[in-house]
């Protein structure tokens, strides 16, 4: 049995088939990338996993459990965290507060102990902070710890979002275009971090990415999607060199590969 699996998933918006019978398997401990032109349906896959949308058909299996009918917050509780293509941070709070929110699924306190800020809650807060500080050290976010995220540069916001997902200590991490809007230097850092996340933290990664160099460099396997249909999947070299994939990116309107 595979670690994470999409079985024949389909969803349509009005008349538009955004996903049409998509299937893939992600093995534990690998980086699995999804590529495809804009509008291919990549983000929609993530939004379906997170249960923001209901699948019309098919299901997601995570560690032998069907997660395609659970309530949205349960997905995170089960150990799946994500970042968003268009940053979704808690804007009016500090970077550290965003990371602490990542700790939410590990809380053991209730409203009454919290209202009294009992020693148990204090202990828990200190543990959460220790964990959050580890992530801050890992991603070099020390300088931004106590700053409001709304005022931070775009690249830093993306890093804070990655940090928030890591603070959750997930088993599966979904990254939606992690490098978009980042400069060269930040992308280099990102490549290292993703490799570290996989190798040192042992977290499995499912990534949507437009930067083909990054995809080639860090993915174990790649899936190419176009108009909601799987074109091909397999090892990075084979998929990126596949004629249909090149056609999808360069064909028709000449859609830019980084667009």
């Amino acid at each position: 049995m595979s670690f994470f699996e999409a079985q024949q998933i389909s969803i349509s918006f009005g008349g538009l088939m955004a996903l049409n019978g998509v299937s893939f398997e992600v093995n534990k401990g690998e980086v699995f990338s999804i590529i495809g032109p804009n509008g291919a349906g990549k983000t929609t896959i993530f939004n379906c996993i997170n249960r923001y949308y209901d699948l019309d058909e098919g299901s997601f299996i995570f560690k032998d459990k069907d997660i395609s009918k659970v309530r949205p917050h349960v997905v995170a509780d089960l150990g799946i965290s994500r970042t968003f293509q268009n940053i979704e941070l808690f804007k009016n709070t500090t970077a550290i507060d965003n990371l602490l929110l990542g700790r939410h699924r590990h809380r053991r306190s209730n409203l009454f102990t919290e209202a009294l800020f009992s020693p148990f809650v204090q202990r828990q807060e200190i543990d959460s902070r220790e964990k959050a500080e580890e992530v801050i050290d890992f991603l070099d976010l020390q300088a931004y710890r106590d700053q409001m995220v709304a005022g931070l540069p775009f690249g830093v916001q993306k890093t804070v979002e990655l940090g928030r997902a890591l603070a959750m200590e997930p088993e599966l991490l979904l990254l939606d275009e992690p490098s978009s809007g980042m400069n060269m230097e930040e992308i280099e850092d990102l490549a290292f971090w993703i490799t570290d996340i996989k190798e040192e933290l042992g977290i499995t990664i499912l990534m949507v990415e437009h930067n083909m160099r990054l995809v080639k460099e860090i993915s174990d396997r790649v899936l190419a999607l176009n108009f909601g249909v799987v074109l091909t999947q397999g090892d990075p070299k084979g998929v990126l060199g596949h004629p249909e994939v090149m056609q999808a990116y360069l064909g028709d309107e000449g859609v830019s590969i980084t667009g």
């Binding site: 949205p72 917050h73 995170a76 509780d77 968003f84 808690f90 009016n92 709070t93």
Partner: peptide, 18 residues
């Protein structure tokens, strides 16, 4: 913090398990 999260982004709050 969960309450503040809901204020700032319901989508992200759910992704945190809230």
């Amino acid at each position: 913090r969960a309450m503040i999260a809901i204020r700032d982004s319901e989508v992200a709050a759910q992704a945190m398990g809230i």
